[in-house]
Every structure is written in C-alpha cells, then in structure tokens.
Simulated assay, not measured.
Amino acid sequence: MAEKDYYDILGVPKTATADEIKKAFRKQARKHHPDAGGSEAKFKEINEAYEILSDEEKRKQYDTYGRYFGGNVPPGGPGGAGAGWPGGGVPGGGFPGGASYQTVDMGDLGDLFGNLFGGGAGASRRKSAHRGADMQYDLTLSFEEALKGTSTKVDVKRTETCATCKGTGAKPGTSVSTCPTCSGAGHVTQGQGVFGFSRPCQRCGGTGTVVEQPCTTCRGKGQVVRAKPLTVNIPPGVTDGGKLRFAGKGEPGTGGAPAGDLYVITHIRPHAFFTRDGADVVLDLPVTITEAALGAQVMVPTPDGGKVKVKIPAGTADGKVLRVPGKGAPKLKGRGTGDLKVRVRIDVPKKLTSEQKELLKKFESLRADDVRAHIA
C-alpha cells in the first residue's frame, strides 16, 4: 500500500481518465489554494498527486510499485539489490528504472491560478491600470439660466499628472529604479516548481519599480490634486436636482485606462413668482371675486419675458388651472416645450369699507342657492 493514496487525494477512482484527473485537480486546487484561504500543505499534496497521475509513465510506475514509488525504497529496491526494478536499482533516489523527478507541465493551469488569485506574470502590472473615478459637482443656476441653458465655468478639483516630475514620481534629475524585491516583475513567487504561487510585490505595489528620491511636489505619487476651471454647457430646461453627465471629464485613468465621468447636479434658485413642474412652468394668478364670478381676460407674464392674454371663465373656482400651451420650459433632448400652467388664486379682501360691506350683504341676500346644502 502507498503511504499516500494519490487517487484518494484527488477524489477519483483508479480507473479515472486523464481528463477526469485534470478536472478533479482543478476543482481541488481552486478549493485549497492558499490565496483562497486553503492550506499550503494540502495544496502541495494536491499538486504532488496531479504531477504523478497526469503523467502516463509515472502513473503506471505508481500503480506498479505503490509506496516504493519516488525513491522511498531500501538500497537496491524493495526486494534487495536490483530486485524487481526495471533496469535495477533506483539511481539517485529517483523513480524506478532511473527516471528522475521532474516538475509537471501544468499548461493552462498556471493561467487558471493567475486569474483566480492574482498570481502569474503580468497580473500585478495589469492591476495598475484603472479607469478614473467619477466626480460630482453641485451647480446653482438662476431660474432663467435653467430655462434657457447656459455655458459656465466650474472649478473642479481633479487629480492630474505632476508637472514637476512628469508623472514619474521621481525627483527631477533622477529616475525610478527596478524593484530589488521582485526584479521588476511586479510579483513574487512563494514555493518552488509546481508548488509555487505568485503574489503582488509589497515593496513596489505591483508596478515593478520604486522611487528612491521622491519628487517634492507630488511626494513620489506622480500626481497632484488641482482645482482646474472647466467649461460645461448646460442645456435648456434642466430641473432642480437634475444630473448631467460629462463623459471623460472626471479623474484621469491610470496605466492607459480612460478617465472617469463628471456628473453635474443642478440646483435652481427660486423665482419671484414662477415655479417648475418638470417642463411645465406654474404661475399663481391672483384674481378678484368679481373676476372669478363674472369672468375676465387678464394679461399674465410668460417665462421667456413676454406676456400673454388669459381668459378667466365666469364662475372660476379657486385653484383652477388654466393652460397656455408651449409657454413653459424646453424639454430636455429636444422633445418640445412644456406649458404655462396658470393657477387661479381668488383674492379675498381683508379690509372693507362700510359701502362695500353693505353691497356684499345685499348680494348675499339675493343668492338663491345654499353653498352648504351638500353637507347639511
């Protein structure tokens, strides 16, 4: 019996095909890889089992010699000098027949671990390429600016390449150096051969280079934060709390990655008498009791600075909304224009002369209807 049952380690029967062994190895390796929280000892054991069982000749010898496979034999072989061993003896303490212990060619399995756990050549360097962060800017506009649109400058604090060191992070006159820990690879390998796995280099952060004499302006970062004026075009019809996206105007990317986006949040200062309801503009129009009762035609202002005549129908109640089509705010993305919504507000006089009181009393006595009949 073998000291280690490689079939049991991979969880396959002795009749397993090469493809089944490979699939089982991948599954166990994923589960027990140290970067995934597994045991390094178990991971090495899994690799050892796969190295033997994935090689047709080594597997055949393992099936034949059991625990004496791989050099765990007494001098001359299990039955004495040269007994039962192909070619006699085990030269160099290697495999039966003089075979030497070699590292298995894992093929695409190395890429598997690189993708899963950040190892493998170039993985750390790829991590240094990042899309720039998105940014937000709160912009306050007047009612008219929001209605008509405007072009304005905003001071946006963005990360930019340091002009002193040109982004290298090194003091002018000096240069960056190859990281002595990883020799410029950006990653370091722990273990050897089939048992090895890579991690990003902690010394250089995966870049493969270090700055021995940092730039005094950016302190070795290669970037500085500056408030830079940026012209943004605000389209007509923006609303309070609206969000405008300006592609590529956010933080710059690193390692050749694209810049992030700038999101401008619009805030609109209150108007003296207009309010917004989406693309519609609302105007509260005071009317007298007489105008509401008898009807009238009145001139009202429009958001564009003009005036328009509005008809107040006889018997208009307080709160009734009269629409003036096309006199509101522009709809975003060129979808037309909203309406001007004139909301009637009946003005009840707070102070009356004696004559006005008498006239109202006479009017009330002439009314034939009971305004509270429906709740009596």
Rank of each mutant, 00 (worst) to 15 (best):
Q192R: 07
G241F: 01
A146D: 10
E160I: 15
L244H: 09
G248L: 11
H187G: 08
T254G: 05
R245Y: 00
A170G: 06
I234N: 01
G242Q: 15
P180M: 00
C162K: 03
T150L: 03
L230C: 04
T239Y: 05
E251W: 05
R203V: 13
G256V: 10
C204T: 09
A185L: 15
L262K: 07
G132T: 05
T254R: 14
A257D: 05
C215L: 06
E212M: 07
L139M: 13
R245P: 00
T168R: 10
T140W: 14
T168M: 07
V232K: 04
L147S: 14
T209R: 11
S183G: 08
G256R: 05
Q202V: 13
R199H: 07
D240P: 02
G237I: 11
K249Q: 14
T181I: 04
A259S: 15
N233C: 00
Q192K: 12
S177T: 09
F197C: 02
G205V: 01
G220W: 13
G253I: 14
T231V: 14
T140G: 08
C182P: 04
D134I: 03
H130S: 06
S124I: 06
A121Q: 11
F246L: 01
K228Q: 15
C215S: 04
G149Y: 07
G193W: 08
G260N: 13
I234Q: 06
G184N: 11
G120P: 12
C204G: 03
G132E: 09
K153T: 10
M135C: 10
G255W: 12
T140I: 13
G222V: 08
K171D: 04
M135K: 14
K221C: 00
Q202Y: 03
A247F: 04
T209H: 09
G149T: 13
P258Y: 02
E251M: 09
P236S: 07
K127H: 03
G241P: 06
G253P: 10
T231I: 10
Y263I: 14
V154R: 04
K228I: 15
R203H: 07
P180N: 01
A170I: 02
G237D: 05
T189S: 07
A257I: 13
P229H: 06
R226N: 05
T159G: 12
K249C: 02
Y263G: 01
C201E: 08
V224K: 01
C218P: 10
C201Q: 08
L230W: 03
A129K: 11
Q213D: 11
S175F: 00
Q136E: 11
C162F: 07
R126I: 11
Q136D: 09
C201G: 14
G184P: 07
